[in-house]
Write a protein that binds this DNA or RNA. Structure first.
Lengths: 336, 336
DNA sequence: CTAGTATTTGACAACGTTGTCAATAGATGG
DNA sequence: CCATCTATTGACAACGTTGTCAAATACTAG
């Protein structure tokens, strides 16, 4: 690799002069500058960031620890949002994935701290509580899409309550009074908080809460192919004497399966039943017919917000709720 | 930040001795070693990789340039696969995303080269041709999920032909003779290659190719919500005098929409019609009923393979086709 | 106890930069 | 033409490591 000294030799100047040219120091004679630039181009010289870093004690690197974040569809937007802001500040992201502890959190953090990351982002792939490794506190850090009890880290999480509220409110506005809710596994924060939002919207509309309308859509967490449960959930809800006319589905997959269940029974979303949901899976929601109205998780925005907070130092520790986007398609409307 | 010298002072030894302890040099008296380790722990010392790198001219960093890779569901597995292998070799990944040229390919590569990445991975989020920036050639580089004409870079791409062949073969094995194919946009490599595989399977089974059975499922690339086309495609295929009894769908979304179209017409997948597809969207395929048999893109494997090839230097440039996984659920079977 | 050897430790240079300060060259004014 | 000033350039140290080699210490045998 070519160094500043080789360039200096080639241009017939001292290496300090080359340094000046590289850093756009104005105190260089034009003629000299040209000669140096020529040499730089000829040798294809590139400054060595490691050496630079040694001098000014700044790595320009921000660590991004993800908890399998990229396997979850679109949770990768978190990374992209963060990356975008980082890059605006001329920082680069060093990404480590701690999936199944294969790499090991400890080693991941060591790696990043040895590389003198200027800050750390810890991102989870779904909204949950995490144990923050103590080492993270040595460096400005933020939590994204996860939170820690008793910790003092700035935290960015999606506003689940608001999302539950919005999903329900859209249906209430259409005049529905009986709204079924197929929930996620109750171990999940999202499930609990969204239900809270659902109840809040109901209360605000003066409709009393009926526990019969709440059915769990899956039994164990993230169990793929557990479609039987949504099937059962829909059956159970439609069996009620006072049937729901609208459904809030815990995620787009549930909605998709519900569409099928309705279809089997001769019911049609958009005509007989209104539906809202969560996630805005781009592979599902727009493809359903009618298009699924759904609350999109603010992954990108959380990534951006987290990175921004890193650059706006001095803020005290806060927990910031980032709002979902309400993606209105047609499934929440009934036309007749 | 605490340096080796401060540790040395604390332990009352020369900094060189600390260096030895840090690097597990056996030539240190046990008593001294213990004293140094104590000091290291007390001061929470961590070696500085930048300084280390200056000495041995190795950054330990591998650049990962992605072309929006993480926005595509599960394409992020590419990153994870790569990360896993890198980490086994004690390397860390520096990730730059070049989405919409917002950052700029040039700047991204400059950033990485200034940081003296030991190799570069260029990953695309869907299988396509790319223009490789010349600068990439300065460092060992591989292409993943994309390819470049006239270039001499080792390339890892999914074996689309084989996937098309497998998807078709599964149906042929069940005795189907008329197999409809709803294709992706023909601009896409995947579309063309999978059709090739489809034809190959047909030919091998002695069934003549009928262009009427091939219908395009979308008009423009990646146009979200373009569901009308799958609707039309299914209608068109079912209108044929000699109706297909099985469908190869270009992606799981198509399959999902086809399920709905069949359902509307009183046809049921698994009873009247067999279906195979591509992608194994974990949010769709297992949730359909019957479960969708689909060809899973080998994202993770491509990431691994790419990174492995970086560590197994000396290989000549090759293009390696990575096989899809055949995910057999029930949709390709008819029970009656 | 001494010489000789083996073990343990330390001094110093180097990696590629940038900051500090001194040296040189060119320009200005008398 | 000399003194002074300014613009331009260069020498050197330092950042935190590790490799090389020499110095110091401990150990062994006679």
């Amino acid at each position: 690799m070519v160094s500043i000294k080789q360039v200096a030799k080639q241009a017939g100047v001292s290496f300090k002069t080359v340094s000046r040219v590289v850093n756009n120091d104005p105190n260089v004679r034009e003629e000299t500058r040209a000669r140096v630039q020529e040499a730089i181009a000829a040798l294809n010289y590139r400054p060595n960031r490691a050496a630079r870093m040694m001098r000014n004690q700044q790595s320009g690197v921000i660590g991004f620890i993800s908890d399998e974040v990229v396997t979850q569809p679109y949770a990768g937007d978190l990374l992209i949002g963060a990356q975008e802001v980082a890059s605006q500040h001329d920082k680069v992201l060093m990404v480590v994935n701690i999936e199944n502890d294969r790499i090991g959190r400890q080693r991941a953090i060591d790696m990043l701290l040895e590389r003198r990351v200027e800050a750390l982002v810890y991102a989870s792939y779904y909204h949950k509580e995490v144990q923050v490794p103590q080492e993270m506190l040595q460096v400005p850090s933020v939590l994204v899409n996860c939170y820690a009890e008793n910790e003092t880290l700035t935290t960015f999480i999606p506003d689940e309550v608001q999302a539950g509220y919005d999903a329900t409110r859209l249906l209430l506005e259409q005049g529905h009074k009986r709204i079924g809710h197929i929930t996620l596994n109750p171990d999940i924060v999202a499930s609990v908080k969204r239900l809270e939002g659902y109840r809040k919207a109901l209360a605000e509309a003066g409709i009393s809460y009926d526990p019969q309308l709440i059915v769990q859509g899956e039994s164990r967490f993230d169990e793929a192919g557990d479609s039987a449960s949504v099937e059962k959930a829909v059956a159970e809800l439609l069996k009620l004497t006072h049937q729901p006319t609208a459904f809030v589905c815990g995620k787009d997959e549930f909605a998709m399966q519900a569409y099928f269940e309705f279809s089997k029974r001769g019911l049609q979303v958009g005509r007989d039943i209104a539906v809202t949901s969560f996630d805005n899976q781009r592979m599902i929601a727009p493809g359903l017919s009618p298009g699924l109205t759904t609350m999109a998780l603010p992954h990108f925005e959380m990534g951006q917000a987290a990175m921004n907070s890193i650059f706006n130092q001095g803020d005290d520790m806060v927990t910031r709720l980032i709002p979902f986007s309400v993606i209105e398609r047609q499934s929440h409307l009934l036309k007749n």
